[in-house]
Simulated assay, not measured.
Amino acid sequence: MFEIMIVEDDAIIANLIAENLHKWQLTASLPTDFDTIFDQILTSQPHLILLDINLPVYDGFYWCRKIRKVSKVPIIFISSRSTNMDMVMAMNMGGDDFVNKPFSMEVLIAKIKALLRRTYNYVDRNIDVIEHNGLMINLQSGGAQVGETTIDLSKNEYKLLQFLIRHHGQIVSREMLLRTLWDDERFVDDNTLTVNINRLRKKIERTGLGDYIQTKIGQGYIIP
């Protein structure tokens, strides 16, 4: 399991990043004592660091310089300071990448995974199981189970369930699900999605998990 340390003093941003990392089976640590960042890094030995520039006590440049004296751990700067000089300084201090705020979470996660691959030969498919609220999906076999009960899924049911679990806690629109399941949703009957969702719900309910996929009228679906 890879640990990502998020050195960010905005708790809302830090927690949002952590939630998204967990969806990709990555561990997140969130320091709150910004006087001892360096000591915390030495203790926890994270695989990658997300580092804001504007921090209490000392800025991100200071911590990056200290880290680089003892470690080659990958560092991605995340900051609203996006002048050319800030970016140049971040790279000169030893940063590996720079992401401007506000940023796309999908882009940030993609950059993190790319840097992990380059540094540790990290391969997403090595993570072959994801789990949420008692339901587990096997990413290799395309099946799912609750406890000892196996759920046989069709190809579309598997894609639906995996996508919804990866985005658990978020409302996913019908349009997004149609684009996920079919290359060109313009030629798909909207009722087809409803049929797939209902079949998937029934299969999950037979295992004893009720109301696992919830409908938000006029918005889409959510797995809480």
Rank of each mutant, 00 (worst) to 15 (best):
F77S: 01
V172Q: 03
N100G: 03
H167K: 14
F98G: 00
I127E: 07
I78S: 01
D124I: 08
G147H: 12
L161N: 01
E131R: 14
G143I: 11
F77V: 03
H47Y: 03
H168L: 05
R118G: 08
H168W: 09
R65D: 13
M89P: 03
D96W: 13
E106S: 06
K72R: 08
R65K: 14
D152T: 12
N133K: 15
A110H: 06
P46V: 05
I67C: 06
M91Q: 09
N92L: 14
K111F: 01
E148Q: 13
D59M: 05
I112M: 08
L116I: 00
I49R: 03
R174C: 07
T83N: 14
D86T: 09
N126I: 10
I53M: 03
Y58A: 12
L161E: 07
I67H: 00
L55W: 03
K155H: 11
S82Q: 06
M87S: 01
E185D: 06
D96C: 12
I137T: 12
I165H: 04
E148C: 07
C64M: 12
T43V: 10
T180K: 14
S79M: 11
K66V: 05
R118T: 15
D86S: 02
G169C: 02
Q145Y: 01
G143R: 14
V99C: 08
I49Y: 07
K72Y: 04
A114K: 15
I75W: 02
S80K: 07
V123A: 10
V129N: 12
D86M: 02
S173D: 08
W63G: 05
